[in-house]
Each structure stands twice: as structure tokens, then as C-alpha cells.
Design a protein around this nucleic acid. Structure first.
Lengths: 351, 351
DNA sequence: GTTAGCACTCTAAACAGATGAGTGCTAACA
DNA sequence: TGTTAGCACTCATCTGTTTAGAGTGCTAAC
């Protein structure tokens, strides 16, 4: 069986109507809705075909049809490109006084959730490819050092750690100088054994302490919870009856609260960098069981300086894919390198 | 009407049975449950009295009775002290490698939620009374300074801020020295205009920069979101049918996600330091409308060094007050100054 | 003061039609 | 050959009714 243009139109109409109403859509509705000017009987014949092809199903006899995962997949892959709707301006994208990427992302999650009416998640960037900008060791207590690390994007990390040997103030000063000279501009990934050896040698008598320091630096850069995930708008799922059925809602909210699965989900999307970076997962395609009634659209953002992470929007299968993809696309465009600018403005306001 | 001992026993029995089952409890049940060996008819008479006193109600005619807010209040205030049950050991209180109070509290929230089966929230400590331990200014970019502030408890805060004047390395060094000398051991609250003037004078030519720096320090100490609130176990509310009724659940989860109301709620509790610091809010007593079907038990923790905040446990009105209060009491005992010890261990493991 | 007995109330569950949306099929039509 | 009108059929949903059971309040007896 082949999907001719008329069938495609009908499928699109079903998907779009179901998206709005959440109710199975019948042949009469389609007959009136489309500009095909066909009777409901004809539509019925076509719908029978579409059902045979596995693109739509009836929840029960004598009910209208709803799209299957396969139907959505077809829709997303082929039909959406055609009539790309102009995306409404994103409101409330007021990002004020942000001197930390984390806050920026949190705000972004909130704004996206408010704009789309779906749940959103954003993973914090991984800092492995981010360049070191500044390292500062200071003594806090006797035997306790504070390491402050600033990386590109003015992201600040710090740890307190113990050192075995005592250091004089002068030694600390020269160690600081040494570290900054040797490491400045390098990313964590680029710091290899050779460089470490180099620094140890240069540190002379206190070479032993270097590895301790570098460990602490690595520790500081690695975000606290391995990878941070910010979620927002979890309660939006209550807006969709098919999701707020007790068990589903519970599992979903749990998943969103837990955030562990989410990181996993998004990370897997990060690897395959196909297309324009926006990916759509529909129902069973998702690796997380709790989400089998959902669709997730993910995108990879790049704040510049190697700060890359991803954004996911979680909604019912009947989510407005066009709007979501469009919004995400738009946000990505805005985000692309935009952080630095915002940062600059933010800092100016702050003083 | 007076509440004699028998009535009290019956009220207690009703509350405890309702706590377990969540169903209105009838006279027969009480008759069998208590050791009063009274017939259901007698119990009925007593229950009619209790109802008249406003301590219990029938959801509808021909249903059993459930406690009112007033009934719970009486129970919590008077009857709980008597037979304080021995609290089960708190499991999973594994606090590993924590060098930040924030993480510690997050873990604590999780553990409490898992142990009680209620939702929990913990507010981060306010640092206004915490003593400054160490301040470090460093130049990151031209015209951009990084201020790192360490307070008691090894809590580290930082900001990047712009300065108008250029500073030489020597000037920066002496400014650092000056700040540490003048401010060490003081809390934010203790830094008054006199001290600021003092420092400005001592800074000489660069006196103007001092206020900028102090602003930044204050900014750094103030936690990012004014006051941080960590929540956990929000989905536990689905375990209680009377809360998971669509609208209530939605509002509640929203409230927990939003966290703003929570801070308010807990903050108000912080002021009145009555009793042993543990307070119980029942239903309408709560200032947050979304929580009118809930009870909240709050406690104030003190990690030492002025780091004080509070823990709240949110559950249905029929929550196990004894267990919750007991658990909270226990956690408070463990927490009392325990953070420092944990911190020390954590740091040792880390190196 | 306590208890047994009984009539009464009200909820929840179970059941039975009635309704109507929607289908599939067939036959007629262009 | 594709399209349409008509019709019988299905089934979820709604509505009203019945039934069972839990629990009460009251009264009268102990």
C-alpha cells in the first residue's frame, strides 16, 4: 500500500486535530476539516487503509482514530518540513543579571516550560572541553588549601582539600604562578601526563603536591552531581489527560524529580549529531519506561568555549511538534554564542 | 463539655486508626480496637460528644468519623507527649564525601523522604550570622575581579564583578591583606558603616573600590536565589489518596516545584522559637492555600557556626506525627554540630 | 451508665437502558 | 473506477435504579 498525497493529508489532519482535542477523531470531522471536499464515507475508506498501514488505530470499535507511534514518526520525519509554521515570539526571555551558566539555564528551562506548556529539562554543560582561564590556590586553614578555578564563560568552581606538606606563602605564590603559566588556555582533556610531569619537575621540591592539586582541580571542574539536570514545568503534564492518569503521572513526575534517567536520555542523544541537532523521540522509542506515553524533543546547545549541553522538552505524544521544534530552533539560534554577550551585560548591571 | 480520659482514649484511637487506613472509622472498630471493652453503642454516644466538641466529623451521614484540624491539634499538643514511641533507626543516612553544606542538605532531604514516605524540604542556612574566614580577590580579566569568600563551615561563595579603576598587582595584594585583617572573624551582620569607613580610610587612594568589593562580597554570601530550598520525595504525596485527587496533587506538586512559598512558610516558622524547635502546622493553619489538606512539621537545625536553617516534612493531615516528630528530633540530634565532623572526614577521603 | 435492638441514612457498587458517535459494508451513481 | 448515500452494527458513555452494607441515632431494657 502506498501513501499518496490524499492519505498524507488525511493523516496530517488526524494528527493535528488529535493534537488539539486529545480525542479520537472521526471521519466526519476530517471531511469537514480538510479542503479535500470528500464525504465521510470516502474518508472512512482511506482511514481503513491508513489503519492497515499501521499509522493510525482505533482505541476501540466505533471510536475515531488516533495516530500510532509510527504515524507520528512519519509525520515528524516527512510532513513537518513542508509547511513550517512561523514560530510565535518567545515571551519572557528576560535573562537578568546572570553571572553563572547554571542560573541562566535554570531560567531558560522555566521560560521554555512557560512558553510551550510542556515539561522541560536542561543539562548543564560538560566542562571537559572548556578552557581553563585562571587558577588560584589559597590557604584557608593550616594544611587546608582552597582551589578556585575559573574556566571560559566565567564559570567558577572550587574545592577545599588537604595537603600533606606545609607550604610557605612564597611557595604557594610561586605554585600559583606556575600553574597559571602552564595550564592557562588548556582544557581538562588536554592536560595529559606529559604536562603534569612538566609541572612537577618545575615545582621542584614540592612536586609531590602537584598531583594533589591537579586532582582537586579536576574534582572542582567536574560538576557536583556528575552531570546537572535542571527541570521545570513538571506540573504541565497534568494538563494532558492521557498523561495525568494516576500511574503515568506519578511515574513521570518521579522521573523528572529524579533526574538521573533524564541525564542518561539526553546524553545518548548527544552522541549522534545527525541533522540540525534536534531530535524527536516518540513513545516506545524512548529508553525510559515511564515515558512510553510521551514524546521528547531534544536539542544540543552551544554556548561557545566548548560549553555544550542539551535541552529536552517532554510532552504527550500529541505534542505540537512544529511549535516545539520551531521554538527549540529559535532558542538555539539565540543561544548560539549569546551567553557571552549576556554575561557581559549582566556583569555591567551588577556593579 | 469536658474531655475526660475515656474520650481522649477514643479520640486517640480514632486518629491512629484513621492514620493507618485513611478511611473514616466507625464505632464498632473502636469498640474492638481499644482496651476499654465498651460496646459500640457506648462509643457512639461518646463520639457524638466528641463531634459536638468539634474534634471529629462525619464526612457524611452514616459514615465513620474523621478527626478535624482541631482534633489533630489537641492530639499533637496534649496526647503525643505521653507514649512517645521509640523511633526506628534511620536507614541510609550515609553521607559520603560532602564538602558542601548544600550537598549534605540535599542528601538529607532525600534520606528523610525515603524514611518517612512524605515529601521533605530543607532550606539552606542563612549566612548572615556566619563568620567570614577568608577573602581572596583576584584579577580574572582586565577590569574584572573575582572575589572568593570562605565562611565558617568551609562554605565557599564567589562572584565576578567589574571595577572601575585599574589596580596593580601590588595594590590588589595589599587590598587582600587589608580585607582579611579587618574582616576576619566578623559576620555579615557585624560589618557596619564604621568598619567600612575604617577600611576605606586604610585603603587610601583606592578607598572608592572598597565599597564595590564589599558589595560583591555581600552579594556572594547571599545565596543565589535569595534562599535556597531543596525538596525531595514530592511524589510521595501520590501515596495518599486524599491528596492525589487531581487538583490537590497538582497544586501541591506545583508548590513543591516552585519552592518560593516553601521558603516563606519555613521562614515564618523560624521566628518563633518556641518549644524544642519542632513545630506542627495542621491544615488551615498553613499559610499556603495549596496545602490546606496537608500537615507540615518543621524543625530548625543548627550546624554550628551560625549555620541555621530548617527542615520541613509535608504529608497528609493523617500523617504519623509521632514518627515524624521523633525522626526529626533524632535527625536534629545527629545534625547538631555534626556537620563539622563529617566535613573533616569528607575532606580526608577526598585527598 | 451501659447495652441490645431497630429503623433510618447514605455511599458505593452493580446493573440496565438509552444515547450517540463512529464504523464497515453494500449498492447506486458519475 | 472512484465517490457517495444509506443502513445496520458496535461500543463507550451517561443516566437512572436497585442493592448491599456500613454506620448512625434513638429508645427501651438491664
Amino acid at each position: 500500500m502506498e501513501l499518496d498525497e490524499r492519505k498524507a493529508k488525511i493523516l496530517t489532519a488526524i494528527i493535528q486535530n488529535y493534537q488539539e482535542t486529545g480525542e479520537p477523531v472521526g471521519s466526519r470531522t476530517i471531511s469537514k476539516l480538510t479542503d479535500l471536499s470528500l464525504s465521510s464515507a470516502t474518508i472512512r475508506n482511506e482511514m481503513a487503509d491508513l489503519e492497515e498501514m499501521g499509522l493510525i488505530v482505533q482505541p476501540h470499535t466505533s471510536a475515531g482514530r488516533i495516530p500510532t507511534d509510527k504515524g507520528y514518526r512519519l509525520y515528524v520525519d516527512q510532513m513537518m518540513a513542508d509547511n513550517r509554521r512561523e514560530v510565535a515570539e518567545i515571551k519572557d526571555l528576560v535573562v537578568e543579571r546572570v553571572d553563572r551558566v547554571e542560573l541562566y539555564l535554570k531560567q531558560m528551562a522555566k521560560v521554555l516550560a512557560a512558553n510551550t506548556n510542556y515539561a522541560t529539562m536542561i543539562t548543564g554543560p560538560s566542562y571537559h572541553d572548556t578552557k581553563l582561564k585562571f587558577i588560584q590556590l589559597s590557604r584557608v586553614d593550616a594544611g587546608k588549601l582552597l582551589a578556585v578555578v575559573v574556566v571560559e564563560g566565567n564559570v567558577i568552581r572550587n574545592t577545599i582539600f588537604d595537603v600533606d606538606e606545609g607550604l610557605t606563602d612564597e611557595e604557594l605564590l610561586s605554585l600559583n604562578l606556575l600553574l597559571n603559566t602552564k595550564l592557562n588556555g588548556l582544557s581538562m582533556r588536554e592536560i595529559n601526563l606529559g604536562i603534569i610531569k612538566d609541572i612537577e619537575a618545575a615545582a621542584g621540591a614540592h612536586g609531590a603536591i602537584v598531583s594533589q592539586v591537579l586532582d582537586a582541580v579536576a574534582d572542582a571542574i567536574r560538576t557536583d552531581d556528575d552531570m546537572q539536570v535542571y527541570t521545570s514545568g513538571a506540573t504541565n503534564i497534568f494538563k494532558y489527560p492521557e498523561l495525568s492518569g494516576s500511574q503515568t503521572a506519578q511515574d513521570l513526575i518521579s522521573t523528572l524529580e529524579d533526574k538521573k534517567d533524564l541525564g542518561e536520555l539526553v546524553r545518548s542523544g548527544l552522541k549522534e549529531e545527525a541533522g540540525e541537532g534536534i531530535q524527536v523521540y516518540i513513545g516506545e522509542e524512548l529508553p525510559v519506561a515511564a515515558m512510553k506515553d510521551c514524546s521528547v524533543v531534544t536539542a544540543t546547545y552551544d554556548l561557545g568555549d566548548g560549553m555544550r549541553g542539551s535541552i529536552g522538552i517532554i510532552g504527550p505524544k500529541r505534542m505540537d511538534y512544529q511549535k516545539v521544534v520551531g521554538t527549540l530552533q529559535k532558542v538555539m539560534d539565540q543561544l548560539d554564542g549569546a551567553y557571552k554577550k549576556t554575561l557581559a551585560i549582566g556583569n555591567k548591571e551588577q556593579t
